[in-house]
Computed example of a mutant assay.
Amino acid sequence: MGLETVELFAGVGGFRIGLERAGHEVIWSNQWEPSIQAQHASECYVAHFGEENHTNVDIKQIDESSVPDHDLLVGGFPCQDYSVATTGAEGIKGEKGALWWDIERIAREKRPNYLLLENVNRLLRSSTDQRGRDFGVLLHCLHDLGYTVEWRVINAADYGYATKRRRVFIFAAQANTEWGQWMTSKVEKPDYLTQRGFFVDEFPVEDVQTQLPIAHPPNTTLEGDPKETSDEFEFDFEEAGAMVDGGIWTREVTPVYQGESPPRRTGNGWCS
């Protein structure tokens, strides 16, 4: 059964294509590019999906209570303040990094069962002077809203696509949902992130579990409140992980792909 979905930072609609192919319905969307007059991304979105229930308004001007109730909140929120390509990137405190707080206030008001978010993988290491702080703040906010969380860095090239594109995907489920309860009951298992988690069916990884205990404690925990995390938290997040009840489990994983890989574009042309 498909989920009623709200799409933030919709861009030209890449998220929506995948959602609709999976049987979900986008009931409201927002796309706005600040500081420019021509809203090309929004215009492209409307050309493909129509203008009904689409808004081209600065998200900061949107009253969260006006967003329709929904099951799933998705968005690839702006990455410039986390990107390695940006000199002096300010992370969650930057102008675009701070747009995380618009996701948080909408989730706080509407309390959807699930969130699926995307950003550059450097989000896990931001900020430069307090490694892991920004992702820790994000996890703490979701924890305070009653969510369990799983994340994975996925490189499209590792799964047969003709581009190297590393992005972190963040899945959050309310603790009382089926997924939230599953995560809570299984996250301590050493094979959760390789065999049992949200991402492994579509993006399999090697399952190396030699000499590991039946259950293992979290690698670190969230303490205090999001402000305390912002001031003091520092941690090296790995490319896969989960957060349940403030405990954080994280590990490196190795992608497994056995299909055919298409030619890949290089600086001088195409190669196999």
Score class of each variant (00 low, 15 high):
residue 95 E to V: 15
residue 84 V to L: 15
residue 120 V to Q: 02
residue 77 F to A: 09
residue 96 K to N: 08
residue 80 Q to C: 03
residue 59 I to T: 04
residue 69 D to P: 04
residue 88 G to C: 07
residue 122 R to C: 14
residue 120 V to G: 00
residue 107 A to M: 03
residue 115 L to E: 02
residue 77 F to I: 11
residue 78 P to F: 10
residue 77 F to T: 06
residue 98 A to S: 11
residue 53 N to W: 15
residue 104 E to T: 14
residue 113 N to A: 12
residue 116 L to H: 05
residue 98 A to Q: 06
residue 95 E to K: 11
residue 55 T to R: 14
residue 69 D to K: 15
residue 54 H to T: 10
residue 109 E to T: 03
residue 125 R to C: 10
residue 62 I to K: 07
residue 69 D to N: 13
residue 80 Q to I: 03
residue 60 K to F: 14
residue 83 S to N: 04
residue 91 G to L: 03
residue 91 G to Y: 04
residue 66 S to Q: 15
residue 58 D to I: 09
residue 53 N to T: 13
residue 79 C to K: 03
residue 67 V to K: 07
residue 62 I to D: 03
residue 130 Q to D: 06
residue 102 D to N: 10
residue 67 V to C: 03
residue 130 Q to T: 11
residue 128 T to V: 08
residue 120 V to E: 00
residue 59 I to Y: 06
residue 113 N to H: 14
residue 121 N to S: 15
residue 74 V to T: 02
residue 65 S to Q: 14
residue 57 V to N: 15
residue 118 E to F: 05
residue 107 A to D: 06
residue 119 N to G: 01
residue 98 A to G: 10
residue 108 R to V: 02
residue 112 P to E: 02
residue 130 Q to M: 13
residue 76 G to H: 12
residue 54 H to Y: 07
residue 70 H to I: 02
residue 89 A to L: 13
residue 117 L to K: 08
residue 86 T to V: 12
residue 66 S to K: 15
residue 74 V to R: 05
residue 131 R to N: 15
residue 90 E to I: 13
residue 54 H to W: 11
residue 92 I to R: 02
residue 88 G to Q: 12
residue 65 S to I: 09
residue 115 L to C: 01
residue 93 K to F: 09
residue 103 I to S: 05
residue 97 G to V: 02
residue 84 V to R: 13
residue 67 V to Q: 00
residue 103 I to G: 01
residue 55 T to N: 14
residue 104 E to I: 15
residue 95 E to I: 14
residue 110 K to F: 03
residue 99 L to F: 06
residue 117 L to P: 03
residue 108 R to P: 01
residue 114 Y to R: 07
residue 62 I to Q: 02
residue 119 N to V: 01
residue 97 G to M: 04
residue 124 L to D: 05
residue 63 D to E: 07
residue 52 E to K: 10
residue 127 S to Y: 06
residue 123 L to H: 10
residue 69 D to M: 12
residue 85 A to D: 01
residue 131 R to G: 11
residue 103 I to L: 10
residue 68 P to L: 00
residue 103 I to Q: 10
residue 110 K to L: 01
residue 77 F to N: 05
residue 98 A to C: 08
residue 125 R to Y: 10
residue 101 W to Y: 04
residue 55 T to L: 15
residue 64 E to C: 09
residue 95 E to G: 10
residue 104 E to Y: 05
residue 93 K to S: 13
residue 109 E to A: 06
residue 83 S to M: 06
residue 91 G to W: 11
residue 65 S to N: 08
residue 125 R to V: 05
residue 129 D to Y: 08
residue 56 N to W: 08
residue 89 A to G: 11
residue 90 E to T: 14
residue 77 F to Y: 08
residue 112 P to L: 00
